[in-house]
Amino acid sequence: MALRRCHLNPKKTLFLLCDIQEKFRPAMPLFDNMVKNADKLTKAGKALDVPLIVTEHYPEKLGKTVEQLDISHAKLVSGKTYFSMFTPEVKAAIKDIFNDKPEDVVLYGLESHICVEQTAIDFLQQNINVYIVADCCSSRLNQDRDLALDRLRQAGCVITTSESVIFDLVRDKNNPKFDAVRKLVNPPSQDMKLTRQPSGSDVGSSKL
Rank of each mutant, 00 (worst) to 15 (best):
L76I: 01
A120S: 13
L76V: 01
D172N: 15
P188E: 09
S138L: 12
S205R: 10
S112L: 07
L169N: 00
F83V: 06
S189H: 05
L62T: 03
D104Y: 05
I97E: 03
N99T: 05
S199V: 06
S112N: 09
R145V: 08
K36E: 14
N99R: 13
S84T: 15
V170I: 15
L184D: 00
G63E: 06
R182E: 14
R153Q: 09
H73K: 14
F86I: 03
K91W: 04
H73N: 11
L48S: 00
S189W: 02
C6W: 04
Q126C: 09
K183F: 02
Q197R: 14
V158F: 11
V158T: 15
K23C: 03
I166M: 09
D32C: 09
S72K: 11
S138H: 06
A38S: 01
T161D: 14
A92R: 14
L14S: 00
R171L: 11
I159V: 08
A47E: 15
D146T: 08
R25K: 14
N142H: 12
R5C: 08
Y58D: 07
R4Y: 08
F123H: 02
N175A: 12
L152V: 08
N142S: 13
D150W: 09
E117D: 12
A2I: 07
R140C: 11
K11S: 12
H7N: 15
P59N: 12
L107K: 04
N174V: 05
L152Q: 10
Y82C: 05
D39G: 06
C18A: 13
D70F: 08
F123Y: 13
D104E: 11
R171K: 15
K173N: 09
L16G: 01
S201Q: 10
L208V: 13
H73M: 07
D191C: 09
L52S: 05
R196S: 13
L124K: 03
C137L: 08
L147R: 11
L76D: 01
V116K: 07
D168K: 02
K36S: 08
Y82K: 11
I128D: 03
D144N: 15
L184F: 02
P187I: 09
S162H: 03
F15T: 02
S189V: 12
K80G: 01
A2T: 10
Q190T: 03
V106I: 15
G63S: 05
I53Q: 01
D202V: 06
E60I: 08
K12Y: 06
L208H: 13
Q154V: 14
L141S: 12
G156T: 06
C115W: 03
L16E: 03
I114N: 07
V158D: 10
K80D: 03
T81M: 11
D179A: 14
E89G: 05
M1S: 12
L48C: 02
P187A: 07
G45F: 01
S205M: 07
S199E: 09
L147W: 10
L69Q: 01
H113W: 10
L48R: 00
T42G: 02
P51R: 05
Q197V: 08
V77K: 05
K36V: 10
V54N: 02
V116C: 15
L124E: 06
L62F: 14
C6R: 13
P88F: 14
